[in-house]
C-alpha cells in the first residue's frame, strides 16, 4: 500500500459515489464501474506487490501475493455480468419511457400519505362494539 495508490482508490470511490447518487441509470452504471475499479485497487494493494507469481520465473520471495489477484479477477468478471444486467434495466427503461431516469417509487409515496388501519385492529374493534351493545 502506498500513498499514491491509496489516494487513487479514494478518488475512484469518491467519484463513483457521486455518480451513484444520480438519477440517470447510465450515470449510475458508470459510477458502479468506477467504484469497482477502486475496490479492485484496494484488493490488490492489500497483498504484497512484486513479480508475476509464475513458479519458475524467479525467486518466490519476490512474488506478488496471488490470492488477492484471484479474488480481484473473480470480482471483475462478476461485475461484468452484473453491469450487463443493469444495462438491460436501462434498456427496458428506454423501451417504456424513452429515457433512463429512475423515478420515485409510487408505492412508497402512497404509504407516506396514508394512515393505515390494519384488519386486526378493525376486527377487534368490531368485537368490542358488539360486546358492549348487549
Amino acid at each position: 500500500m502506498t500513498v499514491l495508490l491509496a489516494a487513487a482508490a479514494a478518488g475512484l470511490f469518491a467519484i463513483g459515489t457521486y455518480l451513484l447518487l444520480q438519477r440517470k441509470l447510465s450515470r449510475i452504471i458508470i459510477g458502479l464501474g468506477l467504484l469497482t475499479h477502486g475496490a479492485n485497487l484496494l484488493l490488490i494493494t492489500a497483498g504484497r506487490r512484486g513479480d508475476p507469481p509464475i513458479v519458475g520465473t524467479g525467486p518466490e520471495s519476490a512474488f506478488a501475493d496471488p490470492l488477492p489477484q484471484a479474488l480481484a479477477l473473480t470480482a471483475i468478471v462478476i461485475t461484468f455480468g452484473v453491469t450487463v444486467l443493469l444495462l438491460s434495466l436501462a434498456f427496458r427503461s428506454w423501451l417504456l419511457t424513452r429515457d433512463d431516469e429512475v423515478q420515485d417509487d409510487v408505492g412508497d409515496r402512497a404509504v407516506a400519505g396514508a394512515d393505515v388501519v390494519h384488519d386486526e385492529v378493525s376486527d377487534q374493534e368490531q368485537v368490542i362494539a358488539r360486546e358492549e351493545a348487549p
Binding site: 447518487l21 444520480q22 438519477r23 429512475v102 420515485d104 417509487d105 409510487v106 408505492g107 412508497d108 409515496r109 404509504v111 407516506a112 400519505g113 396514508a114 394512515d115 393505515v116 388501519v117 390494519h118 386486526e120 385492529v121 377487534q124 374493534e125 368490542i128
Partner: peptide
C-alpha cells in the same frame, strides 16, 4: 386498552415508514 395500543402502533409504523421510505433512489 389493547385496541388503542394496536391502533397507535399501526399509525406510528405508518408515519415512520412514510418518513424513512420516501421512494427516492438517490
Amino acid at each position: 386498552v389493547y385496541v388503542a395500543t394496536l391502533r397507535a402502533l399501526g399509525i406510528a409504523a405508518a408515519r415512520v415508514t412514510g418518513f424513512v421510505q420516501s421512494g427516492s433512489l438517490p
